[in-house]
């Protein structure tokens, strides 16, 4: 379905995740973050870049991966994206919701 985000028509799935990463930019990113009650800082963008990089390489995301990432530790990750960190951060990063159970 089409949703207007940052005055742009963006295609999202029924959970609000971007369908096409090419439609992602910083404005879209900030709008989605706002909807998730997250105020973005440089650290958030660092994590977002890491997630997008992993997605590009088609490497699955998990909380264990976050621990090993060297970008952020798990405690900080939960603080930056409260209420379901991997779910929310991937939505803001414009990539699909991870399917892993771990």
């Amino acid at each position: 379905m089409i949703k207007v985000i940052a005055n742009k028509e963006i295609e999202v799935n029924d959970e609000g995740y971007l369908v096409d990463f090419k439609q992602w930019d910083r404005e879209v990113c900030e709008c989605i973050a706002g909807e998730c009650n997250v105020v973005l800082t440089e650290k958030h963008y660092e994590v977002i870049e890491y997630l997008q990089e992993k997605h590009k390489k088609e490497e699955p995301l998990s909380i264990r991966g976050i621990k090993k990432s060297g970008v952020i530790n798990i405690k900080e990750f939960y603080n930056l994206f409260p209420g379901g960190p991997l779910k929310i951060s991937t939505k803001i990063a414009g990539i699909p919701k991870p399917k892993s159970c771990i």
Binding site: P60, S62, I63, R64, G65, K67, N73, I74, K75, Y78, S100, I102
Partner: peptide, 18 residues
């Protein structure tokens, strides 16, 4: 293979996750 952490690491992850 499924990237499941061993028990000690899993306990750490749980604690760090709150």
């Amino acid at each position: 293979k499924l990237d499941m952490p061993p028990i000690d690491e899993f306990l750490e992850i749980l604690t760090d996750s709150g």
